[in-house]
Every structure is written in structure tokens, then in C-alpha cells.
Amino acid sequence: MSKDEVIFRRFAPADTDNVWHLHTTASQDVGVCSPEGTWGDDLRNIGEVYIKSGGDFMVAHIGSDFAAMGGLKPLDNDVVELKRMRVHPSFQRRGLGRRILRELESRAVALEFKQIVLDTTTIPGRGSKTL
């Protein structure tokens, strides 16, 4: 494995601290500071919330650095929600967001979901986009 090779894989419990760090770093970089409390509970319990519920959670790393992540959280038997997509600021503008999205789309197909939905937060003062 080269130091620049991107590895995509399923979340493992040992990744919990790295996932939390990536989440907070990427969120702060765009000016979003999550409130304390239950808002981040899903990231502290990825195995139950995403994987055991029938969805998935993927991480990407370059060498030992966590570069990107994202989850699939089932809403019902046919619909899965795309959640917690993040790319570390140091690795942005390299196509990692697109690549982690493709990995998650492939997982959704393999898990036999028929639809992927996305809900996103609007940052005050930055406007919003319709996808």
C-alpha cells in the first residue's frame, strides 16, 4: 500500500475515536459546531445505529490518516438515509466525497435498498442548495 493510496472499508469499533475526530474537524471547518448532547449519539454507537440496523458505515483512509466517512441508516425496508458524509479538510478537492458516495451507493444496492434519501443542514449566511 502506498502512502497516497485510498482504502475504503467498513467501520470497525476501533475506528470510533477517529470517526468522531473527523466529524468534529470537518464540521468546524465549515462553521458548524454541533450542540452537546444527543445530536452525536449515532456516531458514538455506529455498530447499533448503522450496521446492526441493516445499513452500513464506510470509512476511507490514506495511510494512517482518516480521510472520509459516511453512513447508510435504514428508514424502512426499501429506503436508506445517507448520513454523516464527511471529508477531512486536508483531503478535500481530491474527489474523496464523490468516491465515498459511490461506495455507499454500491453498498445500498448490495443491501437491496431501492431508494437513498438525503437531508442536510443549512448553514446560516451561506444559503442552501437544492439537489
Results as ranks from 00 to 15, higher is better:
Ser53Val: 09
Arg98Cys: 02
Ala12Arg: 12
Ala108Ser: 07
Ala26Ile: 09
Cys33Asn: 03
Lys129Tyr: 09
Tyr50Lys: 08
Thr16Asp: 02
Val49Asp: 10
Ala60Met: 13
Ser34Arg: 00
Leu118Gln: 01
Asp17Lys: 15
Lys83Cys: 14
Ala60Cys: 08
Val109Met: 10
Met1Gln: 13
Thr120Trp: 12
His21Glu: 11
Ile116Met: 02
Asp17Glu: 15
Val109Leu: 06
Val79Gly: 11
Gly97Leu: 04
Arg107Cys: 03
Asn45Leu: 01
Val59Met: 12
Met58Glu: 08
His21Lys: 11
Gly40Phe: 07
Gln92Asn: 01
Val6Ile: 11
Leu118Ala: 00
Ser90Leu: 03
Val80Cys: 03
Asp41Tyr: 07
Thr122Lys: 13
Tyr50Trp: 14
His61Pro: 10
Glu112Val: 09
Arg84Lys: 15
Trp20Ile: 07
Pro124Gln: 06
Leu75Pro: 02
Val80Phe: 12
Arg44Asp: 13
Asn18Ala: 11
Gly70Ser: 04
Tyr50Arg: 09
Ser106Asn: 07
Glu48Pro: 06
Gly127Arg: 08
Tyr50Ala: 08
His21Asn: 07
Phe66Asp: 10
Glu105Leu: 15
Pro74Cys: 05
Arg102Cys: 14
Asp78Ala: 12
Gln92Thr: 07
Val49Arg: 07
Gly125His: 12
Ile51Glu: 06
Ala60His: 04
Asp65Ala: 14
Arg93Asp: 06
Lys83Leu: 00
Glu81Phe: 05
Leu75Thr: 04
Thr130Val: 15
Ile116Asp: 04
Asp56Pro: 13
Ala14Gln: 02
Cys33Ala: 00
Pro35Arg: 03
Trp20Glu: 04
Leu101Asp: 02
Arg107Glu: 06
Ser90Asn: 01
Gly40Ile: 01
Leu104Pro: 03
Arg84Ala: 13
Ser64Pro: 01
Asp17Leu: 15
Gln28Val: 07
Gly37Gln: 07
His21Gln: 09
Gly40Tyr: 02
Gly47Pro: 06
Gly97Ile: 09
Gln92Ile: 09
Ser106Ala: 01
Ala26Leu: 01
Ala68Gly: 03
Leu104Lys: 06
Leu131Trp: 00
Ser27Val: 10
Ile46Val: 15
Ser53Pro: 05
Gly55Asn: 11
Arg84Ser: 14
Trp39Tyr: 14
